[in-house]
């Protein structure tokens, strides 16, 4: 982290976006800072956690998913995780892209969407069906997995290679091409 550089010169003007941090001198104008829901620049380095001890994530019975438990990240292959919430409109918007990415490359990785919200499984499964989910749907009731990998806001995606190293992560609505490209980074890294 190079934040001190950012603050080195008092009176220096401008913005440094390194690691999701902007140092601002003087009164920032909030005009025009209208969010887009797209990714925060550079926030993925915050999620490059040194703690790679795998967690056990339970999946629920829903279309494309069944009640089971998975080691996350997987030991024998790359892992793709989508962090979402049923309350999150951009997450709904991203569902078709996830479905397409899963169609194209889901067989090559552990492909899972994960939520940390408090919601009955039946409601979650209903939401999943309504939005055409067709892959593993995991629960993170203590938010431990989410806290480890969330790259800024929701939705957030991470691709982890078979050694447990994060190869790509970003937040905001992604296209299927972006998701597949991220997953391919984890596949290319190998790690086995």
């Amino acid at each position: 982290m190079r934040r001190r550089d950012v603050l080195a010169g008092l009176g220096s003007v401008g913005v440094v976006a390194g690691a999701g941090v902007m140092a601002v001198r003087g009164p920032p104008s909030l005009d025009g800072n209208t969010g887009t829901g797209e990714s925060q620049p550079g926030d993925s380095d915050e999620t490059d956690s040194t703690n790679t001890e795998p967690l056990t994530i339970e999946t629920i019975d829903a279309p494309g998913s069944e009640a089971d438990a998975f080691r996350v990240p997987a030991a024998d292959r790359a892992t793709f995780l989508d962090f979402f919430g049923t309350w999150c409109p951009p997450c709904v918007e991203q569902m078709p892209a996830l479905a397409e990415a899963n169609e194209r490359i889901g067989d090559e990785v552990l492909f899972m969407s994960v939520t940390s919200e408090s919601i009955p499984n039946e409601e979650l499964a209903d939401w999943w069906e309504k939005h055409d989910g067709s892959w593993l749907l995991g629960l993170d009731p203590t938010a431990e997995l989410t806290a480890r990998y969330l790259a800024g806001g929701y939705p957030s995606a991470v691709a982890i290679d078979a050694s447990g190293t994060v190869q790509w992560s970003d937040s905001g609505i992604k296209t299927a091409d972006e998701l597949v490209a991220g997953i391919e980074q984890a596949l290319a890294a190998g790690g086995q």
């Binding site: 003007v13 401008g14 902007m22 601002v24 009164p27 800072n33 969010g35 887009t36």
Partner: peptide, 20 residues
């Protein structure tokens, strides 16, 4: 306002930063 005007850009509706 005591120190020079700063540019500020953000892609998000919530700003991540330090205000000097």
């Amino acid at each position: 306002g005591t120190v020079g005007i700063a540019g500020l850009t953000s892609v998000a509706g919530c700003l991540d930063g330090t205000i000097g």
